Structures are given as C-alpha cells and as structure tokens.
Computed example of a mutant assay.
Amino acid sequence: MVEIIVISTLIIAIAMAFLCVKLLFKQNGRFASQHIHDSKAMRERGIHCVMDQDREARRESRFAVSEKNN
C-alpha cells in the first residue's frame, strides 16, 4: 500500500515538474489561453464561445428564445 502511494506521488511530482518547465525557464513564461475568444483561428472561422453567442442573441432581440403568440 505504501509503495502505491509513493509511486503515485512520484508520478504526480514528475508531471507537475514538466508542466512548470516553461514557466520556470522562460522569462515571461505562461500557459497559452484556452478560451475560444482568445484563439485567432476560431475567430477567423466565426466560432464564438457560448457566452458571446448568448450576448449577441440578447442584443438582437428582447428574448434569447423567440416566443410564439397562440
């Protein structure tokens, strides 16, 4: 049981070290943004995040979902 905990801890520590390599050794190292609105390729294709789509839908009409009068 102790061996499994030690091995698991070692694997997690190695993974964290690999994740931190860019942050530690590059002067302004940082992770790239994973948000859709920060991706140039997504903007060129006209793909927006759901928050932007909702905001656009609310600007276009009073209701986000069209309502029918019966």
Rank of each mutant, 00 (worst) to 15 (best):
Ala13Asn: 01
Lys68Thr: 10
Lys68Glu: 15
Phe25Val: 09
Ile5Leu: 09
Met1Thr: 03
Met51Val: 08
Gly29Ile: 05
Arg45Ala: 15
Ala17Arg: 00
Ser66Phe: 10
Val21Thr: 02
Cys49Asn: 07
Lys68Gln: 14
Asp38Thr: 13
Ser33Asp: 15
Lys22Thr: 07
Arg45Thr: 03
Met16Arg: 03
Ala15Lys: 02
Gln27Met: 14
Glu67Val: 10
Asn28Glu: 11
Ala15Pro: 00
Glu44Tyr: 08
Ser39Asn: 11
Asp38Ser: 14
Ile14Glu: 06
Leu10Tyr: 00
Leu23Arg: 09
Phe25Ala: 09
Glu3Asp: 11
Gln53Ser: 07
Glu56Tyr: 00
Arg45His: 07
Met42Ser: 14
Leu10Phe: 08
Val21Glu: 08
His48Ile: 07
Asn69Leu: 13
Ala57Cys: 04
Asp54Gly: 08
Gly46Ile: 02
Leu24Tyr: 03
Asn28Gln: 12
Gly29Asp: 03
Val21Asn: 03
Lys68Leu: 14
Asn69Thr: 10
Ser8Trp: 00
Glu67Phe: 06
Ser66Trp: 10
Ile4Tyr: 02
Gln34Ala: 15
Arg43Ala: 07
Val65His: 13
Arg45Leu: 14
Cys20His: 02
Ala64Ser: 12
Ile36Ala: 03
Ile7Met: 06
Ile5Glu: 12
Phe18Tyr: 09
Arg58Ser: 07
Ile12Trp: 04
Glu67Gln: 07
Gln34Met: 13
Glu67Ser: 07
Val6Gly: 00
Gly46Phe: 05
Ser8His: 01
Glu67Trp: 06
Arg43Asp: 10
Gln34Pro: 02
Val50His: 03
Arg43Met: 04
Asp54Gln: 09
Ala41Glu: 15
Leu24Asp: 08
His48Trp: 06
Ala13Glu: 04
Ala41Trp: 10
Arg55Ala: 10
Arg30Gln: 15
Val65Leu: 12
Ser33Tyr: 04
Leu19Gln: 10
His37Cys: 14
Arg59Lys: 07
Lys22Asn: 15
Gln53Ala: 05
Cys49Tyr: 05
Ile11Phe: 08
Val50Met: 15
Glu56Gln: 04
Val2Met: 08
Lys26Glu: 15
Ala57His: 01
Gly46Ser: 04
Ala57Lys: 04
Ile12Ala: 10
Ala13Ser: 10
Met42Thr: 12
Ile4Pro: 01
Ala17Val: 07
Gly29Val: 04
